[in-house]
C-alpha cells in the first residue's frame, strides 16, 4: 500500500512538472532545433524585464516570421556569469551598466552596448501599508521588518545607494537574492517594506502598494542591451536589438513603467 501511494504521488508530481515546463517553453518558443530558414535568437534578460520582454519578443516575432526569440531570465549578475562561462547567448539585456561593462571587458560584446530603458526605485509595502511607511527614513526603524535585494544585484546596489544618499542606516531583517523573492515576502506580509523598481510594483498583485520616492532621493537604473560575440545568429540578433531601441518597442516599455533613455 505504502509503495503504491509513493508511486502515485511521484507520477503526479512529475506529470505536473512536465506539463508546466512544456507550456512555459511554448510561450517563449521551443528549444527544439528550428526548421531550416528560421533563425533563433537567444536573449538573456534581467529579471525585472520579464513581463515587458515577453511582449516585446512576441511583437518582434509577428513582425519577423522567420525569427524565433527565446528568452532566458535571471539576475543580471547570474546572466553575466553564464555569458563569461561561454553560454551561447545572442543578446544580453542587463539591468545595470557594471555587469554589461564586465562582459565588454571580457571581449564578449560585439559592437557597443546601448541604453534602451531607465527605471526608478520605489518602496514596496503590503496592501494598506499596515506599518505606516512613508519614506526611506522608515528603513531605520528597528521594529519594522525590512528587506532589501542582495547588494550584488542591481536592485540591491541601487537601494543601498539611495539609502546612503539620505544618510539612512537600514535595520535590515532579510537580504533577498532577487527582486521577485523580495516582492513575494512583502506581498505575503512577512516583510513590512522593501525597495524594488517602480515597474515591479506596477505589475505586482493588489497585495502590494508602492510609495514613490521624491525625485531628489531616487536613483536611476539604466538598462543596456548588446549583441554578443558568441551569437549564433548575429544578423537576427542585431535586428532584435534594433527593434528594442525602436519607437514601437519604446512605447511598449513605457506602458510597463520604464522611462525612455
Amino acid at each position: 500500500m505504502a509503495k503504491i501511494w509513493v508511486v502515485i504521488g511521484l507520477v503526479l508530481l512529475l506529470s505536473t512538472a512536465c506539463s508546466e515546463s512544456s507550456s512555459e517553453y511554448d510561450s517563449t518558443g521551443s528549444f527544439a532545433p528550428t526548421p531550416s530558414g528560421e533563425d533563433q535568437v537567444l536573449v538573456s534578460a534581467a529579471t525585472s524585464l520579464t513581463a515587458v520582454f515577453a511582449e516585446l519578443s512576441s511583437e518582434f516575432e509577428s513582425a519577423n516570421p522567420g525569427i524565433d526569440v527565446v528568452l532566458n531570465f535571471a539576475g543580471s549578475t547570474a546572466l553575466r556569469e553564464q555569458i563569461l562561462e561561454g553560454a551561447p547567448i545572442d543578446v544580453f539585456a542587463s539591468a545595470d551598466r557594471s555587469n554589461m561593462q564586465r562582459a565588454v571587458e571580457s571581449g564578449e560584446v560585439e559592437g557597443r552596448p546601448e541604453i534602451f530603458a531607465r527605471n526608478v526605485l520605489q518602496i514596496a509595502v503590503s496592501a494598506g501599508n499596515p506599518a505606516d511607511v512613508t519614506g526611506l527614513d522608515d528603513f531605520a526603524r528597528s521594529e519594522l521588518l525590512i528587506g532589501l535585494c542582495i547588494s550584488t544585484v542591481p536592485c540591491g546596489e541601487l537601494a543601498r545607494e539611495a539609502l546612503a544618499k539620505e544618510g539612512v542606516t537600514p535595520s535590515i531583517d532579510s537580504v533577498e537574492p532577487n527582486v521577485r523573492a523580495l516582492l513575494t515576502k512583502v506581498e505575503a506580509g512577512e516583510l513590512d517594506a522593501g525597495i524594488t523598481y517602480l515597474t515591479d510594483v506596477l505589475f505586482a498583485s493588489d497585495a502590494i502598494e508602492g510609495i514613490d520616492l521624491p525625485s531628489g532621493q531616487n536613483v536611476i537604473a539604466e538598462y543596456p542591451i548588446a549583441v554578443l560575440t558568441n551569437a549564433r545568429s548575429p544578423a537576427a540578433a542585431a535586428m532584435f536589438m534594433k527593434f528594442v531601441l525602436s519607437g514601437e518597442a519604446q512605447s511598449i516599455l513605457h506602458e510597463y513603467g520604464f522611462i525612455s533613455p
Binding site: A78, E81, G147, T152, V153, I172, S174, V175, E176
Partner: peptide, 25 residues
C-alpha cells in the same frame, strides 16, 4: 532556509547561504 528564514549575516545566514552570496561577489 533562504525562503523561510531569509538571509542576514549574523542572524540567519548559514554556511550554504554564505556560499551562495560569495559566489556572486
Amino acid at each position: 532556509t533562504v525562503t523561510f528564514a531569509g538571509n542576514l549575516q549574523g542572524r540567519t545566514q548559514t554556511l550554504p547561504l554564505a556560499v551562495f552570496v560569495a559566489l556572486e561577489s
